[in-house]
Lab assay of single mutants.
Amino acid sequence: YKIYPYDSLIVTNSISVKLPKDVDRTRLERHLSPEEFQEVFGMSIEEFDRLALWKRNDLKKKALLF
């Protein structure tokens, strides 16, 4: 996945969300650098992957990456 800054990946309720063209809309968190991922989620990507799907989705919603 290509890395993008968190600010360019957050999704708000506005209709005209302009995400970069090559971003996987269903896995926005994968486009964060490991350092920024840790900062946003408070855990590593590996720890995040071990969580239940509902928990990952809940965290993504709170981080505006859903």
Results as ranks from 00 to 15, higher is better:
Y1T: 09
I3N: 05
Y4W: 06
Y4L: 05
Y4K: 02
P5T: 07
P5E: 05
Y6I: 03
Y6G: 01
S8F: 15
S8I: 13
S8D: 13
L9K: 01
L9H: 01
I10V: 11
V11C: 10
V11W: 08
V11Y: 08
T12E: 09
T12I: 14
T12N: 12
N13Q: 10
N13W: 05
N13F: 05
N13V: 09
S16Q: 10
S16A: 12
S16E: 12
S16T: 11
V17R: 07
V17W: 03
K18S: 15
K18M: 13
P20I: 04
K21V: 15
K21R: 09
D22G: 08
D22L: 04
V23K: 02
V23S: 03
D24A: 04
R25I: 15
R25E: 13
T26E: 14
T26L: 12
R27C: 10
R27K: 12
R27P: 01
L28T: 03
L28P: 02
L28D: 00
E29G: 00
E29D: 03
E29A: 01
E29V: 00
H31D: 01
H31M: 02
H31V: 01
S33C: 08
P34E: 13
P34A: 13
E35A: 12
E35W: 11
E36K: 06
F37Y: 02
Q38E: 12
Q38N: 13
E39S: 13
F41N: 00
F41V: 02
F41A: 00
G42K: 14
M43Q: 05
S44L: 11
I45M: 09
I45H: 08
I45G: 06
I45C: 07
E46N: 12
E47L: 09
F48Y: 06
F48N: 00
R50D: 11
L51K: 05
L51W: 02
A52F: 06
A52P: 15
A52Y: 07
L53F: 10
L53Y: 09
L53S: 10
L53P: 10
W54G: 10
W54A: 12
K55M: 13
K55N: 09
R56L: 02
N57A: 08
N57V: 12
D58S: 11
L59H: 04
L59Q: 03
K60A: 02
K60C: 02
K62F: 06
K62N: 09
K62M: 09
K62S: 09
A63P: 00
L64Y: 11
L65S: 00
L65K: 01
F66A: 08
F66G: 07
